[in-house]
Design a protein around this nucleic acid. Structure first.
Lengths: 150, 150
DNA sequence: TATTGTTATACTCTATAACTATA
DNA sequence: TATAGTTATAGAGTATAACAATA
């Protein structure tokens, strides 16, 4: 039996640290993501890349990397893996031949479509402890913290 | 010059995802942590371990690992490194010789004391975009999301 | 000169399983 | 048998620097 010893832990100043709370919350959220979408063979980071390409066809790798706070070197590997999987296509634009534009293949769109319902279920699960209003307020505050538009 | 192309990116459904917002917010917060405390040779995770040991003398490794959502195998390595640095001491309690109790050494306490002011400055920096009241509300909501006491 | 994407390297973090010693 | 910590291994994420092609 677990918890028999005494595992109530005082958090002290850490319990009032935004960064600490963000870290734990993010781990909790990712855990739920894997719980609901793990079988679909996609991690949160990959999912976000796919979603952003879908929303922004012909987006460039560097722009995508910056937006997702992923290093360009890492983005290269992710995108190459997704291209090998047949989810993403790449093309060099005429106006800047250094860069690479990304788009979803048919399979990429299908993958997103397949994940949509379990993803929404995952999002809905966040309501177990937070009310609708609280969840909305939490999102609003995080967006403001990030400097994102309302 | 950066931003000359057009790097306004539509987030779509992702922009309304709590997990996605948590992820970006956490990265932003950690970035600031490194900016303010990086020179002190301690990462956010190590700092949280040190703080929790300080708050809970004689805490057991497994309890600490569970609270911080760190795998026990990883916690072993972290604690060993901190012991090698002379920050943490370990002892086997009489009542359960399988387990290990942790405490801070004098150097460990000194390290925390040295980090206190820059850590508070880091926390204060979170107020640049959020008001006092908003920051407090954000923390309250995250704690509730985590199932932590008020 | 600066930027885009690439490659290579190293380190951290995570996940898993097998192991030991205790319970 | 179950649990606490350890070890080993593999994979994923991150950071950095050097490079080629292009701007």
């Amino acid at each position: 039996m677990t918890g028999s010893v005494r595992d109530d832990v005082a958090l002290g100043a850490l319990g009032e640290s935004l960064g600490f709370l963000l870290r734990l919350s993010q781990l909790e959220s990712f855990r739920d993501f894997y719980h609901g979408l793990g079988d679909l063979g996609m991690r949160p980071g990959e999912f976000s890349v796919l979603m952003l390409i879908a929303e922004n066809p012909r987006i460039r790798q560097g722009v995508l990397a910056k937006k997702l706070m992923i290093k360009r070197a890492h983005m290269t590997k992710m995108v190459q893996a997704m291209e090998a999987e047949g989810l993403v296509g790449r093309s060099v634009p005429e106006d800047d031949k250094r860069s690479i534009e990304l788009h979803l293949t048919k399979a990429g769109h299908a993958r997103i479509a397949a994940m949509r319902t379990p993803f929404e279920a995952h999002e809905a699960r966040n309501l177990t402890r937070l009310s609708d209003a609280e969840l909305a307020e939490a999102k609003r505050l995080l967006k403001k913290y990030l400097g994102l538009p309302e």
